[in-house]
Design a protein around this nucleic acid. Structure first.
Length: 447
RNA sequence: CGGGGUAUUGUGUAAUGGUAGCACGAAUCGUUUGGGACGAUUUAGUCUCGGUUCGAAUCCGAGUACCCCGACCA
């Protein structure tokens, strides 16, 4: 991989360099006490917990219904998620491209979706011109492939992008779980025959599970047979079980694959293993993959010359993951009454370094700060992403409460107390216990 | 798109039709310093438009926005 993409390593560095370290006193954010923690909370009509936490911890900001800004903390998480997905797509042979959001009406007329797709945003240009804001990119990628695929020798091939999508949802809801503007990874694969698509599709299922595992929601995510919408008879959704989800899935007790509501009504037995024992769960769809077949190659006349000289339509597949929705799903799955608990892989920082200012006049203030700063520098040298709470006007309690809310995996506390033992206190966000670690030993902790 | 609800300062909330208040936040000063610490001072608000009224945050009408339920959801 490194040979094939010699610049990948450098790109990773570039993508993450701006968030490797940060002084909390300079960080662009503000926290609020989440209202679910407040006694005033009445409970009814509450929004999704993930939204409450992400907003109050300063990760995202709502501009309007279903439209959010990502602040530095949230953007950092977003970039981590993006890189996990990117890495997996490249491993699966995908080549990254970037297609336009603004798309010609003509292409959407051609596929019949200009008038049939309710969620399509239409915008006016000068004169009588109309354009679509891409809710998905078949109408762009198909004609694009036509310019690059001519022969069976050009197949199979797959391209992907991580790009903003627009869908005019009738009802945006539950924070990042259902928005009108969102980042999505969409990969499109092109094949010479159905068998090749089938093979790639099965491979992609494995790749997707690997992604959700790396995102920290692998255990509660189920492959779910669903209807294919306008694309195909069937598709597969990746559904993460959570009460905040708006879908209902039926998980087979025997083989642990799932079906959605529509399929359950059509075929009461498990299509995979014929079992009729299911458990019903609420879930959110974090990914969806389709066998498009010739649905889009035909209207765009996307054909290739096969080895026997015959001309055939290209067989297509598409594979999507919503990035923001995945982040919301992770928070739904991983939080407690104090705040978010980020999986290490996508946490905005790996370490939250906190200095606790000794009482003035103790003579220890300078030593605590100097030690914290030294650790801050050392962690950076090790390539560890660290947020340093260097604020001098905040009490210990406030710093701890805020650290729990933000949810960084490792909390390292430097105080007069720990220095007396030449140590720092290390606590993992998902554990209750703390431990003292000698400062000299600290560098080994993250190896 | 149908139904329901809400709209008061950055956030969370009070105020019989009669002086818009409280808490958090933010700012200054001082005291604190291992779980959102304390005191003092300060900052900032009635969604918009119209109506009723001597007087409207409050009542009425329209609009807008947001939230919830449903429908919808490549």
């Amino acid at each position: 991989m490194d040979k094939a993409f010699p610049r990948l390593r450098a790109r990773d560095d570039l993508f993450t360099s701006f968030i490797n370290h940060m002084l909390q006193s300079k960080l662009f954010y503000k926290t609020n006490k989440p209202s679910f923690a407040s006694e005033l909370r009445t409970g009814e009509e509450k929004s999704a917990i993930s939204n409450e936490l992400l907003v109050n911890a300063g990760f995202i900001d709502q501009l309007m219904a279903g439209v959010y800004s990502f602040l530095p903390l949230g953007f950092s998480v977003l970039k981590n998620v993006e890189n996990i997905i990117r890495k997996n797509m490249i491993d699966a042979g995908g080549q990254e491209i970037l297609m336009p959001v603004l798309q010609p009406k003509e292409n959407w007329i051609k596929t019949g979706r200009w008038n049939n797709l309710d969620v399509l945003f239409k915008v006016n240009g000068s004169g009588d011109k109309e354009y679509a804001l891409g809710p998905t990119h078949e109408e762009v990628v198909s004609p694009l492939a036509k310019k690059n695929v001519f022969s069976y020798r050009d197949l199979p091939i797959s391209v992907f992008q991580i790009q903003t999508k627009f869908r005019d949802e009738l009802r945006a809801k539950s924070g990042l779980l259902r928005t009108r503007e969102f980042l999505m990874k969409d990969l499109y694969s092109f094949h010479a025959n159905q068998e090749d698509l089938d093979k790639y599709y099965e491979k992609m299922i494995k790749v997707y599970f690997n992604i959700f595992k790396e995102l920290g929601i692998g255990k509660q995510t189920y492959l779910t047979l669903a209807s294919g919408g306008t694309f195909s008879k069937y598709s597969h959704e990746f559904q993460m079980v959570t009460d905040a989800g708006e879908d209902i899935i039926y998980i087979c007790n025997k083989c642990k694959t799932a079906v959605n509501k529509e399929i359950k009504n059509e075929t009461p037995a498990c299509p995979n293993c014929s079992s009729d024992s299911f458990v019903e769960k609420k879930a959110v769809e974090v990914g969806n993959i389709f066998k498009l077949g010739t649905k889009y190659s035909l209207p765009f006349d996307l054909k290739f010359k096969d080895s026997d000289g015959s001309e055939k339509p290209v067989i297509m597949g598409c594979y999507g993951i919503g990035l923001g929705r995945s982040i919301g799903a992770v928070v739904e799955a991983s939080h407690d009454e104090k705040g978010i608990i980020w999986p290490k892989e996508i946490a905005p920082f790996l370490v939250h370094l906190i200095e606790i200012n000794p009482s003035t006049g103790s003579g220890q203030a300078k030593k605590v700060k100097a030690t914290a700063e030294k650790i801050y520098q050392d962690l950076q040298k090790q390539g560890i992403q660290v947020l340093y709470d260097d604020r001098e006007d905040k009490s210990a309690g406030e710093k701890f409460a805020e650290a729990d809310l933000i949810g960084i995996p490792y909390r390292i506390v430097v105080s007069e107390k720990t220095l007396a033992k030449n140590s720092v206190e290390v606590k993992e966000r998902n554990k209750k216990s703390t431990k003292l670690v000698k400062i000299k030993q600290l560098s080994k902790l993250f190896k």
